[in-house]
Amino acid sequence: MYATSPPESVHALDHGALAHPDISFFTARAAGPEATLLGCGALKQLSPRHGELKSMRTSASARGQGVASAILTRILEVARERGYERVSLETGAEDYFETARRLYRRFGFAPCPPFADYTDDPNSVYLSLALP
């Protein structure tokens, strides 16, 4: 994220932060003996009813193969199982992030105001999805 966004607008979590008890980490791997990592995503509990989607990534070699959709589908299933009423996310406003924003819109995420500890930032887009 540091290659595409100003440092003050990077909200990515490092490995240590992803290991926090409030965060569940998900991966998608290729079938076979090497089990190559294709993508990942995380779900952070903000409250008993609100989760945050974090750290969605797909490897360059796996893009366009449905990996991000599969990970996002699984994360939203887990959010529903936990009783979350809403899942929110922050992503970049730059053109680089358009593919991600398109994915989130396809899943029903809609613009929302900054949530949790986020503040207004011209380099960020905030989206949220109400869960049935």
Rank of each mutant, 00 (worst) to 15 (best):
P7N: 10
C40I: 00
T73H: 06
T58G: 05
S9L: 03
K44H: 06
V87H: 13
E81W: 06
S69H: 11
A17P: 15
P122N: 11
S61K: 03
T73I: 09
P7R: 09
L129S: 06
S124C: 07
G64D: 12
Y84V: 15
I75D: 04
R29Q: 04
P48Y: 11
A42M: 15
T36Q: 01
L127D: 06
S124Q: 08
G39L: 00
A42I: 09
I75K: 10
R29M: 04
L129C: 08
E94D: 14
L46S: 11
D117F: 15
F25A: 07
D22R: 11
A12F: 03
R105V: 14
S61E: 05
L53T: 09
A93C: 06
V10P: 01
A31H: 04
Y126A: 06
G16A: 01
F115M: 10
G39V: 02
G16W: 00
A28Y: 00
E98Y: 01
P48W: 13
L37F: 07
D95V: 12
T58S: 11
D22G: 01
E52S: 07
V67D: 00
E98D: 10
L103D: 08
I75T: 13
E34L: 00
D14W: 12
A130N: 12
M56R: 11
H50Y: 10
P33C: 03
Y118I: 04
R74H: 15
D22Q: 07
P111L: 06
E81G: 10
I71W: 09
R57T: 14
A93N: 12
V87Q: 07
N123H: 12
E77W: 10
A19V: 10
H15F: 09
Y104A: 03
R63E: 05
L43M: 04
P132C: 11
V67T: 11
L127S: 08
V10K: 13
E94I: 08
A110N: 01
L43N: 08
D22W: 02
A17L: 14
V125C: 11
P7K: 10
R29A: 02
S59A: 09
D22V: 05
L46W: 10
G66R: 07
P33F: 14
F115L: 04
E77R: 09
H20A: 04
F26K: 10
P122Y: 08
K44G: 05
S88F: 13
A110W: 01
F25Y: 12
S5K: 03
R102E: 08
A100P: 02
Y2T: 04
R57E: 04
Q65R: 15
A35I: 03
P7L: 05
R106M: 13
P132N: 01
L43Q: 04
V78T: 09
I71N: 12
L13G: 03
S47D: 14
A3E: 00
